[in-house]
Amino acid sequence: MSELALTPSQTVGPYLSLGLTWPTGYLVVPEDAPGAITITGVVRDGTGAVVPDGMVETWQADAEGRFDHADDPRGASGSGFHGFGRSSTDAEGRYRIVTVKPGALGDGQAPHIDVSVFARGLLDRVVSRIYFPDEVEANAADPLLSSLPPERAATLVAEQVGPAELRWDVRLRGEGETVFLAV
């Protein structure tokens, strides 16, 4: 089998909004969908300054822990749930995604959302995960979270800030640096 060599990554640069902005990209589900939650947060650099020219993307299972994707060995859900969110950061470094809490996948992992962060100064995306603060037991048993020192694992767990609102900040570098993942 001949294997083709991969195309390298390059930065999105400062002008990503020209190509990557979708007006409703932040809506994984409509704002008035049953069970809709908002996840918001601020992306900061190594000095703690906000990153106003970045982009956050999310990918997740539906509320039942299923993907509408043929590569899921459990079968595609057929639900039409597209699972993808995309939000540019604003002048205050803030992103915002409206979604539903993903269900457990049934494989021993706690409910989670995979995240990619892109920005000028990042030559490749950085990948992380959002976990949920109300899943104390599942988080304790999660293979990734339980492999990390508690203070590092804490960077992956969102904070409940309202009845249907969670906060999850990204610190790219420095104090409280978010755990990033090699996928």
Binding site: T47, W59, R74, G121, L122, L172
Partner: peptide, 26 residues
């Protein structure tokens, strides 16, 4: 610009599970 934005810690290697082998079909 990488100086202030590149993480200082090495990334944690994540085993590929369901969320990583699926993705948005846009």
């Amino acid at each position: 610009s990488t100086g202030l934005r590149a993480p200082s810690q090495a990334p944690v290697v994540l085993r590929h599970r369901l969320t990583e082998i699926t993705g948005p079909l846009l």
